[in-house]
Design a protein around this nucleic acid. Structure first.
Lengths: 129, 129
DNA sequence: CGGGATCCTAAATGATACTG
DNA sequence: CAGTATCATTTAGGATCCCG
């Protein structure tokens, strides 16, 4: 196993006890990139690795792969190999992943409003096939 | 300035550019403890430092203080010194902080459901004055 | 009670190179 | 295209002591 693959979240972690439901959510989808990846998958239904990379310009391939492996392990994301020529891989939210929609939606809207209030520039990359 | 006071979030950070509104939200209320602190303040309206500490048993005083300073700096939380004998301090969400309610609510509900599905124990500390 | 100051550790993230 | 391996770094988080 890769030496810096993190513990799969969502599973009981040794010594981790929760005292608030919000802690659980943070444990599962916390981190810098996880909610961003999930938000894009929520918007686009199915995305290839390279498409996600383009939509999230500042993520490294390593981080993107790591987050996807993690989300796949806890069945929030499906990994779908597609046997075209050349073959590729698509990612999509599972039913459990789709249950995150209200969280992701609320985060998206709040970020939009906060950016407006504080005049922060947000420049989404437009989607390309 | 303390050597490990983080940059105030919400303000433009040097070199940080956003390509998704969700990134903004993560930047402002991301991290292990911030959403938990905010969720408790949302529930209880006003809480003293010591009360927050009890409600979040695993947080250290340093982290709690650091998160509160941060949230105060960007005006998501109000710090209210109360001149009783002995004096104490109360914390509350500002109007801007209250705008996070949908995010926190969605996170709380999702965490509750995920914990149930995965049989994770969550034992909230009961509130005490 | 409500912290600040120091020092330290571990996890998360990142750069770069390479591959089936 | 879709990754993995290695190495380096950043930074969040924590332990401890101290203080008005």
């Amino acid at each position: 196993m890769s030496p810096d693959t993190p513990q799969p979240p969502g599973t009981a972690r040794p010594g981790r006890s929760y005292h608030c439901h919000v802690e659980v959510t943070v444990d599962v989808i916390g981190g810098k990139w996880t909610p961003v990846v999930l938000a894009h998958l929520k918007e686009h239904d199915r995305l290839r690795f390279a498409q996600l990379r383009r939509l999230i310009p500042d993520i490294t391939e390593k981080m993107l792969a790591q987050r996807l492996r993690e989300l796949e392990a806890i069945q929030i994301v499906d990994r779908i190999p597609v046997s075209t020529a050349p073959p590729h891989v698509e990612y999509a939210l599972t039913a459990q992943g789709r249950s995150l929609a209200p969280v992701l939606q609320a985060m998206w809207e709040w970020g939009r409003d906060w950016a407006a209030t504080n005049r922060l520039a947000v420049d989404p990359v437009q989607f390309r096939h």
